[in-house]
Computed example of a mutant assay.
Amino acid sequence: MAASKTTTPPPVEPAKCPTCKGSGEISRAVHVGRKRRPVGQQTGICLTCLGSGEATD
């Protein structure tokens, strides 16, 4: 009996988060004062994937 070759499938890469594009971080505008004028940007973790960069189903 000949042994049949079994090949393992290549590892499947998880899908990237559509909100942060796989980086795990997202930028938000920072506003200050009563008139809420924008002063810059601040980065934080993506709340969709919680910083992992992988899409969740």
Rank of each mutant, 00 (worst) to 15 (best):
A15F: 11
G24R: 02
E25Y: 01
V30P: 05
L50F: 13
P14Y: 11
E25T: 13
V39K: 14
S52D: 02
K21M: 03
T6L: 02
P10D: 14
A15K: 15
E13K: 13
T19P: 01
V12S: 05
E25M: 09
R37W: 07
C17M: 03
S23I: 04
S52K: 09
E54I: 11
A3H: 13
R36I: 05
I45R: 12
G51E: 05
Q41P: 00
R36Q: 13
G51Y: 09
I45S: 15
S23K: 08
M1R: 08
C17K: 04
S23F: 02
T56N: 12
T8R: 02
G40R: 11
R37H: 10
P14Q: 04
T43V: 12
L50R: 03
R37M: 06
G22C: 03
V12A: 09
P9E: 15
R36E: 11
A29E: 15
T56C: 06
E54Q: 14
Q42N: 01
K16F: 01
T56V: 13
S52H: 02
M1H: 14
P18N: 07
P11G: 10
C46D: 00
K21E: 01
T19G: 02
S23C: 07
R36S: 15
A55M: 10
E25A: 06
K16H: 03
C17G: 02
I26P: 03
K35I: 06
